[in-house]
Structure formats: structure tokens, C-alpha cells
């Protein structure tokens, strides 16, 4: 079996290698991918959308329809994770709940949960495989979180002028939540961004994107043609396009952030969102 696979792979590799001569040379400015629409994007972006970053203007304006469905795919991936792990889960995974008495370090194992308030002063809920954590690591990770989030918002809002945008900002925001989950525990993440809230945020992001497109439709333009905002709100058409790009980028960031946090929570806890990494 392995030999057959190796043979097939080498054959496919040789066939691909035989076509390498037909691809454009590295760094060729006149190659086919750089000839048709690409020059129009580069020459038109600044005048048409007031966006110096071509990648942002192509992503959210020229190819906005494509990006809308990419965002929907990310949202659907999060939802399918939810349905695979959470909705189809069996109840028998975590029946025992462990509570640690903070002053003495005694651990109680309980079959019926919620006898002790979850955030009481002297007891804390701990994972089954709990070990004493390093205070330095935990404190430093939590110290980093606000800076990561501020940088994420900068990347999101400054995507018109520098490398960045909704996808990158959303991933950074998700990384800050995952950092909390890694340094503390999963229940802290659940307390910060509850599961229901996260899924609603992801859905709201897709709705903001599609709603921006529909608003343009109602104002007399085409779907996702942000130029229609110009006459309606008394702005120049390029400035209106720039604002439309910012709106959809915010929607993308919300969806990506909430989806990645949801996937992390579900996958790391086998769908229980009780104990995990």
C-alpha cells in the first residue's frame, strides 16, 4: 500500500515537474496573473476607494462577494464544530467535579456539581488533571492580553493603510482569548466570552457583512457596491467606499474571532467546555 502510494505520488510529482517550464518566471512583471485585472486594481484603488493598501481594497471591495462567502465558510466551520462535538456529545464524559480549598489545598471530588458556588472565595473549581501552576507564567500571559487586543484593534482599523484587516485582526483577538485559556483554564475563557455570546457574535459578523451589501442595494446601487452610500450620506464616492470597506472588515473580524475561540473551546475540551487545556 505504501509502495503504491509512493509510486502514485512520484508519478504525480514528475507530471507536475514537467509542466514547470510553462509557468511564469519568478519576478516576471508581464506574466499572465499580473496582466489582466491586477493593473486595474493597482492603478484604480487609490482614486476609486481611497485605500492605499491594494490587498484590502481588492479583498473587501473589488472581490467583496468572494470574501463574503469566505466569511460564511468560517462561520459554518464553527457551527459544524459545535454540532459535531457539542450537540452530539454523550453526557458521561465529566461526571466528577473537583473543587480545591484554596487555603489548605485540599481537593474535594463531588458527584453532584453546583453545591459550591462556582466563584466562591475559598473554593475553586479545578480540572481533573490539575497541577499547581506557575504564577509567573500565568501573570505574564494575562498581562500580555490587553496589549495583544489593542494591537488587534490597530491591525483591524489600520488595514486601509498598512498590512492588516479583518481576518488578521480577528485572528489576533482570538489569540488573546486562547492565551487566557492556555495560561488559566477554559472556564475563564467561557466566563469572558460565553459560548452563546460567541456564536451570536459570529452570526452578527456575517450579518454586518451581508447587511452592508443589502444597504447598498436599498440605496440604489448593486449588492456590495459601497459607492451607493456616497449620495445617501453626503460623502464623496471614494470616501463612501472606504467606509464600506471598514464596515465589512469589522464584520469579518467579529466572525473570525468568535469562530476561532469557539473551535478552540470545543476541540480542547471534547465538546464539554468544562475542562480542557
Amino acid at each position: 500500500m505504501k509502495r503504491l502510494a509512493l509510486f502514485v505520488v512520484i508519478l504525480a510529482g514528475l507530471l507536475l515537474a514537467a509542466t514547470a517550464d510553462d509557468f511564469p518566471r519568478l519576478g516576471d512583471a508581464g506574466s499572465a496573473p499580473s496582466r489582466h485585472v491586477s493593473p486595474a486594481y493597482i492603478q484604480g484603488s487609490l482614486d476609486q476607494t481611497h485605500t492605499p493598501n491594494f490587498v484590502t481594497s481588492v479583498l473587501a471591495d473589488y472581490r467583496g462577494f468572494d470574501t463574503m462567502f469566505e466569511t460564511t465558510v468560517v462561520f459554518l466551520a464553527g457551527m459544524s464544530c459545535f454540532f459535531i462535538l457539542r450537540a452530539l456529545r454523550r453526557k458521561s464524559l465529566s461526571e466528577v467535579y473537583y473543587y480545591r480549598h484554596k487555603p489548605t489545598g485540599t481537593v474535594l471530588a463531588m458527584l453532584a456539581p453546583r453545591r459550591i458556588p462556582p466563584r466562591s472565595s475559598c473554593f475553586e473549581r479545578i480540572d481533573a488533571d490539575w497541577t499547581p501552576q506557575d504564577l509567573v507564567v500565568e501573570t505574564m500571559c494575562l498581562f500580555m492580553v490587553p496589549f495583544v487586543q489593542i494591537f488587534a484593534l490597530y491591525v483591524l482599523a489600520h488595514g486601509h493603510y498598512s498590512p492588516g484587516g479583518g481576518f488578521q485582526g480577528g485572528v489576533l483577538l482570538a489569540a488573546s482569548f486562547i492565551l487566557v485559556g492556555l495560561s488559566r483554564d477554559l472556564r475563564t475563557v467561557e466566563w469572558l466570552l460565553a459560548e452563546k455570546k460567541a456564536i451570536l457574535t459570529a452570526a452578527a459578523g456575517v450579518c454586518i457583512y451581508a447587511g452592508t451589501g443589502l444597504l447598498a442595494l436599498f440605496l440604489g446601487g448593486n449588492f456590495l457596491d459601497y459607492g451607493a452610500f456616497g449620495p445617501a450620506f453626503g460623502a464623496a464616492i471614494p470616501a463612501a467606499r472606504s467606509m464600506g470597506i471598514l464596515c465589512v472588515e469589522i464584520g469579518v473580524a467579529m466572525t473570525v474571532m468568535a469562530t476561532l475561540v469557539t473551535i478552540y473551546k470545543l476541540v480542547s475540551s471534547r465538546g464539554t467546555v468544562e475542562e480542557g487545556l
Binding site: S38, L59, V74, F167
Partner: peptide, 17 residues
């Protein structure tokens, strides 16, 4: 050329999801 970069930007996030 910005176009391949745009396509791969979305592909990376979708591949993670």
C-alpha cells in the same frame, strides 16, 4: 500583484477553520 495575496489571505483563515 495583490490578487494572489488576497486569495491566499482568505485561504489561510478558511484552512484553520
Amino acid at each position: 500583484n495583490p490578487l494572489p495575496q488576497v486569495l491566499m489571505l482568505t485561504a489561510i483563515v478558511v484552512s484553520v477553520a
